[in-house]
């Protein structure tokens, strides 16, 4: 990383006792199920020019034990939720008596590439939509079923299942055209120092990735692996829930999952992951 990380490493090397950790991303390679080689570090997309040179998956900042859980689907606890979502996919619900499968057949064919391009502008609706918004649109308008609560169990599990069918594909979220205004809004949020601690996303994830903040090894805050299974709360976690936690940690008033603010921020942060392989469902501590 940068000068700062080097300084930190030099300091750590020079002093022994309490500082026995070193910053930076590791050099491991990620191969899923012994077959799918993943892009976990790559040249930053053009719109990050001057901000960072390389985009790096959050996987590189986790311990070997946590990393290994993501390498094999039998070890990945997120897969349980993917299986549950597959059942829901095939189950008819709502006044129309339809299941997702009735319109979309086998997700391994019809959902390929979806996660890599979301959030995405929806021309008919005239809005930027996340995967969960699109799912809820189908539920309400095509199935006559209730919308799922944003980032809650079923919604996140379904997003993970859909995302799995893009695993290994490069993130390629569009930021121009009609999505540009939302993207700008998200970018502004990313660089705004909020809360009583006056910290922006960039303070932690752009200026200090690779450094420790107390016991936490800061990553770039990429979202190519979302939804993520966290060992800490033993469930799948959505992007907006993660954002909420990070905003709260600046001693700020947070936004709600599913709010326009977080949709804009998701669009912007997803675009910072452009080029990295979709990893969902990833595993973090």
């Amino acid at each position: 990383m940068t000068f700062k990380a080097l300084t930190a490493i030099a300091l750590v090397a020079g002093l022994s006792a309490p500082l026995a950790m070193a910053g930076g991303a590791d050099d491991d390679t990620m191969v899923i199920n012994d077959e799918t080689e993943m892009v976990t570090k790559t040249a930053a997309p053009a719109h990050l020019d001057g901000a960072v040179d390389e985009v790096i998956s959050g996987w590189h900042f986790r311990s070997d034990e946590t990393q290994s859980l993501q390498l094999d689907d039998f070890d990945n606890p997120g897969m349980i939720f993917v299986d549950q979502a597959m059942d829901v996919w095939n189950t008819a619900e709502g006044s129309e008596g339809k299941a997702c499968a009735d319109c979309h057949n086998d997700p391994a064919e019809t959902m390929v590439g979806v996660k890599a391009t979301y959030p995405k502008w929806n021309e008919e609706a005239g809005e930027v939509r996340t995967v969960q918004m699109q799912v809820n649109d189908c539920r309400v308008n095509r199935m006559g079923a209730e919308a799922w609560k944003y980032d809650a169990g079923k919604a996140v599990s379904m997003e993970a299942m859909i995302s799995l069918h893009s695993r290994g594909m490069p993130m390629s979220v569009a930021i121009d055209g009609p999505a540009a205004a939302m993207w700008e809004k998200g970018k502004e949020m990313y660089y705004t120092r909020t809360g009583q601690l006056e910290l922006s996303c960039a303070n932690c994830h752009e200026d200090n990735y690779g450094n420790y903040i107390r016991a936490d090894h800061l990553s770039q805050g990429q979202i190519n692996g979302f939804p993520v299974y966290r060992l800490k709360n033993a469930k799948l976690n959505g992007v907006h829930s993660r954002f909420k936690g990070c905003v709260r940690d600046t001693r700020a008033e947070t936004y709600s999952p599913g709010s326009e603010d977080f949709i804009a921020l998701e669009l912007y942060v997803a675009s910072r992951s452009n080029g990295l392989s979709v990893e969902s469902p990833s595993v973090r501590n």
Binding site: T192, R193, T194, G195, Q196, L197, E198, L199, K244, V247, R248, D249, T250, R251, A252, E253, T254
Partner: peptide, 18 residues
Amino acid sequence: PSFYKTKGYIRPGDAYTG
């Protein structure tokens, strides 16, 4: 952070409650 300051924040919150 500014440790002895009480105002002038963007989206201040009530401690860590969000």
